[in-house]
Design a protein around this nucleic acid. Sequence first.
DNA 1: ATGGCAGGCGCAGCCTGA
Length: 255
Amino acid sequence: MQLATWNVNSLAVRLPQVIDWLLAHPVDVLALQETKLTDDKFPHAALAEAGYRAQWYGQKTYNGVALLTRSEATDVVRNIPGFDDELARVITATVDGVRVIGAYMPNGQAPGTDKFDYKMHWLKALRDWVREELATHPKLVLMGDYNITFDDADVWDPVLLKDTIHCTEEERYHLRALVALGLADAHRLFPQPEKSYSWWDYRDFAFRRNRGLRIDHILISEALKPLARRCVIDKPTRKNERPSDHAPVIVELDL
DNA sequence: ATGGCAGGCGCAGCCTGA
């Protein structure tokens, strides 16, 4: 079983690239973030032609998430139950016996801002909910755009970016707290290239210079950890014509 | 230190992203 996550920065713009990518990488599950589409505009027919069913949850202009799956997705939940959020950031479903949570964590703008406070509250709510889900679904994958780096190895210039957004100790605390629920960073289960990132700024030739951050993560539960076979960042896709600023991340499980 | 690029909205220029 292969699962992937990709922040596409507008599915309206990126639909051709997503379909091409699925044809070249026929994963079982693809979690999308930043679809930026209201639910009535979701391109489910085009995705069905490519062989994928879809569950989606969007809004106008910003955010928006989806799960594209080869088999049926059941027990679908949108956003975090009990957490009042007007932004469409999470979609969860059971696929082939695995509980899959696709999430677009808040950006947070900068420490000390209202958006940063929202990010902290949001991450706490997510953690409480993932804890509940893990209790009933030992086989669980939490993947998406976390907008948080684990440590300096995830940052192209940790000195320049020390304590800036995505790199603060408060954010990293929340990321480690998610892991502490009984999850593992699939990326670090395997040898990886030096300076592996999942996002590069559109500006200043950042991709060409490999000035990036690893902020898109796939966390897998303890029950799935022994079944993990591979985890790769699909860096070549960032070289696409009209690319998203994020690259897809793929995990392969022996399921 | 700042802005640079991209997308949405909507038709100029601002907001947001990361």
